[in-house]
Design a protein around this nucleic acid. Structure first.
Lengths: 217, 217
DNA sequence: CGGGCAATCTTGTCAGTGACAAGTTCTGAC
DNA sequence: GTCAGAACTTGTCACTGACAAGATTGCCCG
């Protein structure tokens, strides 16, 4: 079942609610089909919703199973355990981040894209940089993370050739810290008062002008 | 860890093992004293240890109770619930941060102190900026947070008078983002490879020199 | 001195959760 | 067609947070 992007909210085959009254509560089998069809994706989507709303700690595998209309142990089949689910999300996030950074015109644009990524994929972002939530050995995560790191370094190298001859890794740390800090504070609502109605990305861009004095491009 | 110096490691009154045989019968009743003596502080200390080691999500009230040698419901008396405990920690953190920022010589020093605070009080830092973990209405938290925010703004105002005439709030955002991002990435071990053996605060100071071009001081 | 009150802590309980084990149903490759 | 394995279910266990009700104790006020 390809249908990668369609609105596959719930059970794909049974559009009605899972509590059709013909089988009231008998512990026998429910009338939904045995196979969900795209459980992995459904769980992932629900997990992203929950995390974006209430953070990773609010995530419950059993709740996700209920949302998908599936038994409480079904998610484990696709993700092994909670850590596995979060690891999959983090890996996906790094892949998405890498892809948007690839198109960055220069370092400042990369920073803006970093912030935009955090705003558009808050759930991914909240998970990606928390090792204690992730399965550190995971191959998919490791490669995705390596890729996004490489894109980050690429962006730094597009900056003014040398940053005054400084260690480029230091410039990378500074740029990453600035973007990451802004994104983090933004997502945790610590900048709400200052940003106000303005577009956060504009605020970020303007703030960086103060530090990187309008790079020669 | 400075190890606050008071020897309140465990039960303060009973240095001996909890199985003194004077009460042979009634297996329900342990012979430890009914009152712990300084339970609130003991719980707080244990919580900081756990959070620093494994993050806030690893925190269990029952585990803290066990560490303090106390019944599983005892912590609730002092902190109401998990959120209450984390809120108390966050408030304490903001007070500590405010106090160290008060002594900052200039903006860069404030940044360095911010990073140092995160390193010396990682548990506090990991909790302070996560609203979803905190009781938002809490009075103690609100006042402590207001104080640390004020100190942050004070530090920005000590910078080069105008930052080129820019909105001082923007300069504040930029400085805060930079420091917060560095501290966050540092604590989550995302800078381990780049920082290596060097002193993180030195790395931070050097990195900021790239952005704030050696302020006229 | 002593009575009572409030703070502190305990025991008991309930629903929710993650993890695991073992069984059931379906799918697709041969 | 069949059958191996993928996808899902049921059942269970230990653990957790929250709450309720009772026990113990320090201490204030008379």
């Amino acid at each position: 079942m390809p249908r990668t992007n369609s609105p596959d909210d719930d059970r794909p085959d049974s559009p009605d609610r899972p509590d059709t009254p013909d089988r009231p509560d008998t512990p026998g089998r429910p009338d939904r089909p045995y196979h969900h069809g795209d459980l992995r994706r459904a769980i992932l989507r629900a997990a992203l919703d929950v995390i974006a709303a209430d953070g990773p700690s609010a995530l419950s595998l059993r709740d996700l199973a209920r949302r998908a209309g599936v038994s409480h142990a079904a998610p484990a089949h696709h993700f092994k355990d909670r850590t596995g689910l979060l690891t999959a999300i983090a890996a996906e996030g790094h892949a998405l981040l890498a892809s948007t950074l690839t198109e960055a015109a220069d370092l400042r644009d990369a920073g803006v894209r970093y912030v935009r990524f955090a705003r558009e994929h808050p759930a991914h972002f909240q998970v990606m940089f928390r090792p204690e939530l992730l399965r550190e050995g995971d191959l998919e995560l490791t490669t995705a993370r390596a890729l996004s790191g490489e894109r980050l370094r690429d962006a730094v190298s597009t900056a003014r050739p040398d940053f005054g001859g400084a260690d480029p890794r230091l410039a990378g740390i500074a740029a990453w810290s600035l973007s990451h800090g802004f994104a983090t504070l933004l997502l945790s609502h610590n900048l709400d008062a200052v940003v106000g109605d303005r577009d956060p990305e504009d605020v970020f861009r303007t703030a960086t002008e103060l530090l990187f004095p309008s790079t020669g491009r």
